[in-house]
Simulated scan of single mutants.
Amino acid sequence: MRQKLRDAGRTMVMTNGCFDLLHVGHISYLEASRKLGDSLWVLINSDESVRALKGPTRPIESEAERAYCLAALNCVDHIVVFNNPRLIEEIKLLQPDIYTKAGDYTLDTLHAGEREAFEAVGTEIKFLPFLEGFSTTRMIEKIHRAASL
């Protein structure tokens, strides 16, 4: 699929994350990412990878549920579930034209190995505005507060 896009001269945008409990911040970010190219590929952390990053109580939704919800969005063209803590192999394989990350990241806070892999394949890295006040952690806190009332 990636090669077909390249052969057709179409632009592939890639982003990644856990995307546990899809919320307004995620959707706003994904829509903005999609506007930058012809096809948006979302790489999501596997359940095992999310647990390693966020702890034993996460993810709330399984990788299949998260992938299904993301795939239902008009702005998302392809979903890839990855198991490694870092995307270095996926970057080398897919060679995206553009990589997006939310504005709470900077070039300095990106994983150095991933940044080097993007640079090696000629990917343009873009940081998109971060929608303040929306996060999965905040949603979980709201649910806990509501449950204790």
Rank of each mutant, 00 (worst) to 15 (best):
C18I: 07
E141C: 00
M139E: 09
Q3A: 03
D20Q: 06
R51W: 04
E63N: 04
S148W: 10
E31W: 05
C69S: 12
I91R: 03
H111E: 14
I44V: 12
K101P: 01
L131V: 15
T106D: 07
Y29C: 08
W41M: 12
A52Y: 02
L70F: 08
Y68L: 11
A102I: 01
R145I: 03
S135R: 00
A64N: 10
R2N: 15
R6V: 15
T137L: 00
N83L: 00
V42D: 09
N16T: 13
S49H: 08
H78R: 10
F134Y: 15
I140H: 04
L149F: 13
Y105V: 04
A32H: 12
T57C: 03
E114L: 01
A72V: 03
E31K: 13
F130P: 09
A64I: 07
G103N: 09
R138I: 13
G17H: 05
A147V: 07
L110R: 06
V13T: 14
E61W: 14
H78P: 00
N45C: 08
E114C: 01
L93H: 09
S148Y: 09
E114G: 04
D7N: 14
V76E: 06
N74H: 12
L87M: 14
R58I: 03
A67Q: 05
G113H: 07
V13R: 13
S28Y: 13
V50G: 01
I79M: 05
V50P: 01
T109C: 06
T136K: 01
L107I: 12
D97A: 09
P59M: 05
W41I: 13
L30N: 01
K126I: 10
N83W: 08
K126M: 08
L128I: 06
L128D: 04
A72D: 01
S33C: 14
R138M: 12
V50M: 02
L36N: 07
R58G: 03
I125D: 07
R10S: 06
Y29A: 05
E116C: 01
L21C: 04
S33G: 15
Q95R: 15
H26E: 12
K4Q: 13
V50F: 02
A146M: 09
T137R: 01
P96I: 09
R51L: 02
R66C: 03
E119W: 03
V80F: 07
H26L: 05
M12I: 14
N84R: 15
E61D: 04
L30Q: 08
A112V: 15
K4D: 13
G55M: 06
D20W: 03
E48R: 10
F19M: 10
D108L: 10
S46L: 10
P96T: 12
R34S: 13
R115I: 05
E132R: 05
T123Q: 10
N84L: 09
H78E: 15
D104A: 06
A146L: 13
K142N: 13
Y105R: 02
H23S: 10
E114M: 02
S28A: 12
E141S: 01
L131Q: 14
S148A: 15
I27E: 01
V50I: 11
L21G: 00
R6E: 13
L73I: 11
I79G: 02
